[in-house]
Design a protein around this nucleic acid. Structure first.
Length: 562
RNA sequence: GCGCCUGUAGCUCAGUUGGAUAGAGCAACUGCCUUCUAAGCAGUGGGCCAGGGGUUCGAAUCCCUUCAGGCGCGCCA
């Protein structure tokens, strides 16, 4: 319905000789302001040098097909308020039922390729709640974008090369030694969770011989064994959470020498073999953004608005963590995506400028990389915060919460807030099977509608009726209000897509459920009156279609019964 | 000290990207199960949008400033 209005308005506005690329359409706050509203006259007032109300009149006068409108008002400082006819709204409802998802979505992406990298937790321990929130967001966003016509790749970056993995290995190594009765010192900043001992025990089962290999070989074996085990555990957590990836990029791989140079502009080639890390530094060097100072190698990040230049190779010759990140992001760019999205913990926000500097240094606008930040999750139990201390190795894992309140509930709750705002999750509330719990509230609406259909089938109405075969004139005001809300879904979908904000869907679903439940309570759908029954069944069908679509994007099940 | 984020009802948070008289859920008090599911519904209260200034037809939203909180500012990862 918005789309049609947009076209009509665009025509009418261009008849005023005004230059407009897009027309703003909004939902008025008050019902008696109409169904949709356009502030165009006010925006145009300056360039047309005419008072807004006059412009509004002119626009209204040049609208050609007025038959779909009940009325068009000019109100306030110059709003044009549109009220649609019941007939038109009902034909839109019919179309929604017939075309379903194609009417709900819009091809915004037009096949553009987007990569979303998310979670990417170090394989040094189980996923915690923050990772879970990132996972829920990443998955929902990728569903949203693919529904909007983007081609999406979901990637997980495995930090399997850095200090953290070494530390994991050393921790398990020490535990392993201790298991064999050696008084071996535990590393200072080692990982202290219970899983460290588990890993040591598992390793002992796998390779029972002790004291045969030298410590270095053993440490290397234990390290590889441990991080792979942890990665498996992470993969299982994610799978059980209902989040899957298309691609797993290993950091180690970026360090391994390649047969031929991936960077076409490079000087080297032939016998010489370089890794992607080396090669990406070469590229930056050739482009003139690398220099030596104090014995270290620097990236000229200030060239692109970062606070300071960044060291890539330390004086001792080691790479900083930033070096593989450069290689990694260059690799993303070279894969040819039209947009790259990274989802990071909010504590990493300081790295955005330097990463975007890299993007610009290799010749792309900084908007090519979009970073979404995910804030902390605070876990409450009956209103009291659940204490966690990472130092002692105690933290709430995604697994624990998922086991207690279920994956669907967890995901939904993670998506009830803007991602960059703090989130509080109360376990007790999440477990409650009542209106306190927004997840069930929405799912219940879906299940309830389903049982109405069940009833209709028993009464043999379902079989005799095509879903879109109903008389819309029979709808009462309350039903019309719901229908308008349903027809706004595409607008909400569009806005959520543009803003990359899946939580808007969560809010919308709560609103539509909040309209259905009271309606259900007041009016019987399946009744003696066959014509009214048919109309109401159609309305229920439409609500269900919308609920199902929204829940699908959130990655939450739409249960048939509860 | 510098930078980023946040500040909206008692609590948790939305606010259609600058629109009309500021919204929801929870918590609190009161009712409703012979009916298509009570995991539900009906009713009642609650605001200096942190403070101040500015930009304009119009500001919770943009700019400046003050205050409060969080995070980040390494040749750590």
């Amino acid at each position: 319905m918005e789309k049609i209005l947009r076209e009509i308005l665009l025509k009418a506005v261009s008849a005023q000789h005004a230059e407009v690329s897009s027309i703003e359409i909004e939902i008025p706050k008050e019902e008696n302001f109409g169904d949709l509203s356009a502030p165009a006259a006010m925006t145009l007032s300056k360039s047309l040098k005419k008072p807004p109300r006059k412009i509004a009149e002119d626009i209204v006068n040049s609208i050609e097909n007025k038959e779909i409108f009940e009325k068009i008002d000019i109100a306030g400082p110059g709003f044009i308020n549109f009220t649609f006819t019941k007939t038109f709204l009902c034909s839109e409802l019919k179309e929604l039922i017939e075309k379903q998802d194609t009417l709900l979505t819009e091809d915004i992406g037009k096949g553009k390729r987007v990569q979303i990298e998310f979670v990417s937790a170090n394989p040094t321990g189980p996923l915690h709640l923050g990772h879970g929130r990132g996972a829920a967001l990443g998955a929902a966003l990728s569903n949203l974008l693919s529904e909007a016509g983007y081609e999406v790749e979901k990637e997980y970056y495995i930090n399997d090369a850095g200090r953290q993995v070494k530390l994991l290995g050393m921790s398990v190594f020490a535990k392993y030694k201790q298991l064999h009765g050696e008084d071996y010192p535990f590393p200072e900043d080692g990982y202290r969770g219970e899983y460290i001992e588990e890993l040591a025990k598992e390793f002992r089962v796998q390779s029972p011989e002790f004291g045969v290999k030298d410590d270095n070989t053993l440490l290397k074996e234990i390290t590889d064994f441990s991080y792979k085990k942890m990665l498996d555990a992470i993969k299982k957590d994610l799978a059980d959470f209902g989040v899957n990836f298309d691609s797993w990029q290993s950091e180690r791989e970026l360090y391994t020498p390649l047969k031929s140079p991936p960077y076409k502009g490079g000087e080297w080639g032939g016998e010489l073999q370089k890794s992607e890390v080396e090669d990406s530094i070469d590229e930056l060097k050739n482009r003139g953004y690398i220099y030596e100072k104090d014995g270290a190698t620097w990236f000229r990040a200030t060239e692109f608005g970062d606070d300071k230049d960044r060291v890539i190779i330390k004086r001792e010759g080691d790479y900083t963590y930033f070096a593989p990140d450069i290689a990694y992001h260059r690799k993303k760019v070279e894969k040819g995506f039209d947009e790259i999205i990274d989802i990071w913990g909010a504590d990493h926000h300081g790295y955005i400028p330097r990463m975007q500097a890299v993007i610009q240094a290799i010749g792309y606008p900084k908007e090519h990389l979009r970073v979404l930040l995910v804030q902390m999750v605070t876990l409450l139990r009956g209103g009291k915060p659940v204490q966690m201390s990472k130092r002692a190795g105690e933290f709430i894992t995604l697994r624990e919460v998922m086991d207690e309140i279920g994956a669907d509930t967890t995901k939904f709750l993670f998506l009830t807030r803007r991602s960059d705002s703090h989130l509080e999750v109360d376990i007790e509330v999440a477990k409650a099977q009542s209106s306190e719990n927004p997840v069930y509230y929405v799912q219940y609406a879906h299940a309830r509608i389903n049982s109405i259909f069940e009833k209709a089938r028993q009464e043999a109405i379902g079989e005799r009726q095509k879903a879109a075969d109903f008389n819309g004139e029979l709808f009462n005001d309350e039903e019309m209000r719901i229908i308008k809300k349903l027809l706004i879904y595409p607008m909400m979908f569009r806005n959520a897509t543009m803003a990359h904000e899946p939580h808007r869907i969560t809010f919308y679903l709560q609103e539509i459920a909040g309209m259905f439940h009271p309606y259900y309570h007041k009016h019987r759908v399946v009744s003696e009156d066959l014509e009214i029954t048919k109309a109401r069944l159609a309305l229920c069908r439409a609500i269900q279609i919308v609920l199902r679509h929204g829940l699908k994007i959130l990655g939450v099940k739409a249960p048939e019964r509860m």
